[in-house]
Amino acid sequence: MEEDSQLLFAYARRGDVQSLAALVRRHATWMQALLRGMLPVAADVDDVFQETWMRVIRAASRYRGGLVKPYLATVARSAAIDHMRRTRATVSLDDEEGEGAEVASTMVAEGPLADEAFESQATSDDVRRAVNTLPEGQRQVLLLRVEGGLSFREIADELSVPLGTALTWMRSATLKLRKMLGGGK
């Protein structure tokens, strides 16, 4: 199987659209999951997904190598933020206890699930709901880490926050999700 960078180079240098199609298919799942976690309206995912790839296409000639997945994750995040700005749905990264806090506290009040439930009973909807309750900064760190595969240094650079802040947000997000989803730690 060709590397992501080879596919992107094949498109950028030779105009090989099939290489780009393979790249789009390869990264479709996690990118949609990332966008679904970032965007408040699920129906907007397709728009932002398309916009992400349009940006990649426009910038393809400037691609000089490097890991493709983290690059795509940062482009997707940027497209999502621009979309939210246009639709006035953005939330500041500093809003540590956003509107989801109430939902989170409700879920926590229900008590941690058993370990088995953590593995099998928390559905996709539960997880999405729990992730959406996280403050904006924690949610973005979590999604960029889990779905985008970025390092914490890359996440800190992308969010323009100190590395320690990114690590703290990830830790807080992890603890909250454990409580909400049943990890209990």
């Binding site: 298919r25 479709a28 999951a33 996709s124 992730v131 889990v146």
Partner: peptide, 17 residues
């Protein structure tokens, strides 16, 4: 676990390909 659950309901086919 989170990755698996977040991607569970997502179509593997890219939209607007």
């Amino acid at each position: 676990f989170l990755k698996e659950r977040l991607e569970a309901g997502v179509s593997g086919e890219p939209p607007r390909l």
